[in-house]
Simulated scan of single mutants.
Amino acid sequence: MTTSTNEQPAMQGKVTVDMSISLDGYIAGPNDGPENPLGDGGGRLHKWVYDLASWREQQGLDGGKTNRDSEIVAESTENVGAVVMGRRMFSNGDGPWGDDPFEGHWGDNPPFGVPVFVITHYEREPLEMDGGTTFTFVTDGIEHALKQAKAAAGDQDVEIVGGANTVQQFVAAGLVDEIQLHVSPVILGDGIRLFESLGSEPIELERTRVIDSSDVTHLRFQIT
């Protein structure tokens, strides 16, 4: 019996980070919580996206602007097959879930439309929502969460959507392939920084794209 040598290895997507950020490096303002998920002033970081047609479509809304920014938002989600987030991104909380656990900030029909893996210290049954989003709660670390996400995504990308500590863990562990930042023209001065606690060794990046508009600057990097 012979084995074919023409079989191609299965294609595998990238692991990406895609986030809006202030000029001074914050992704949320201070005093974040379940009722204030982006912190004080943090909503300003996403002002550029709210009127875009592609973002509005993801939220089940009509209308909006169709421009280069809108194209970038559509492009950033079109190949995402699974999402990973931390507990604070999901609920801005910690500790046991309690008898009536919070179901996230996105309502009954979250905009993800793909499996979402939430990294937490506390077990919880999967949460099935409308529109194809199921939140699965992973208690054994980032590597296991990524393994499950890659299995769910197949040959599509896995996106790490936050919060900051979760992104830091994945970057520090060398598990991220690409980072895209949308730099809003604002200095928050306080809040949650994206790139802290990464250790003392430099992390080299290759800049692969810069796109400027009147409301935001889009930067994309490959981690080398």
Rank of each mutant, 00 (worst) to 15 (best):
K14Y: 10
E71N: 07
W48P: 06
S184Q: 11
G113I: 05
D62Y: 02
P37R: 13
D69P: 00
I179K: 03
A153I: 07
H105D: 06
G113W: 05
G174I: 11
S214V: 13
D108C: 02
P9C: 06
G63P: 03
D177Y: 09
A82Q: 08
A151C: 01
I21N: 01
P202M: 08
V73H: 10
G163D: 09
V17S: 09
G113P: 04
D18C: 15
A173W: 09
L219H: 12
A172N: 12
F90T: 06
R207Q: 15
E159S: 15
T16A: 10
H218V: 13
Q59M: 14
P101M: 03
Y50F: 15
G132I: 05
F117N: 01
D18T: 14
I142F: 12
R88F: 12
S20Q: 13
R220P: 00
P115S: 10
V83Y: 03
G104A: 01
W106E: 12
S54G: 06
T136M: 06
E201Y: 06
Q222H: 15
L188H: 10
G131L: 01
D212Q: 15
G60K: 00
D32C: 06
G189E: 04
G174S: 11
A149H: 04
E128D: 12
L45R: 09
P34M: 06
S91A: 14
N92P: 00
T217W: 00
T5P: 00
L175P: 04
G154N: 05
Q156S: 13
T66C: 07
H144F: 02
I160L: 12
F117C: 01
G43D: 13
G41C: 05
I72D: 11
I179P: 04
H46S: 13
N36G: 04
M1K: 14
N165F: 06
P34S: 09
V17D: 05
D215Q: 14
D24M: 11
I187R: 13
G113N: 04
G98K: 07
T208I: 14
V116T: 07
M89G: 09
Q168V: 05
L194W: 06
L205D: 03
S70P: 05
P9E: 04
V171F: 02
G93R: 03
G25R: 03
E75I: 02
R87V: 03
T217H: 11
G131P: 00
P110C: 08
V15T: 12
A153R: 07
G131I: 02
H46T: 14
M1D: 14
D69C: 11
V118W: 03
V167K: 01
L146I: 11
E123G: 13
F195R: 02
Q222M: 13
V167Y: 00
V158F: 11
G113E: 02
Q8P: 01
S54Q: 05
G141P: 01
D140K: 13
V186D: 07
D157K: 10
V114C: 08
H46G: 14
L45V: 11
E78D: 12
G33M: 07
G63C: 06
W97Y: 10
A82R: 04
A173Q: 14
T139Y: 00
R88V: 15
T208Y: 05
L198V: 11
S184F: 04
I203Y: 04
Q222S: 15
G64S: 04
W48K: 10
S91C: 13
V84D: 03
H182Q: 15
V210M: 13
I223W: 05
Y26D: 01
T166H: 02
V73N: 08
N31H: 14
N36K: 08
P115N: 10
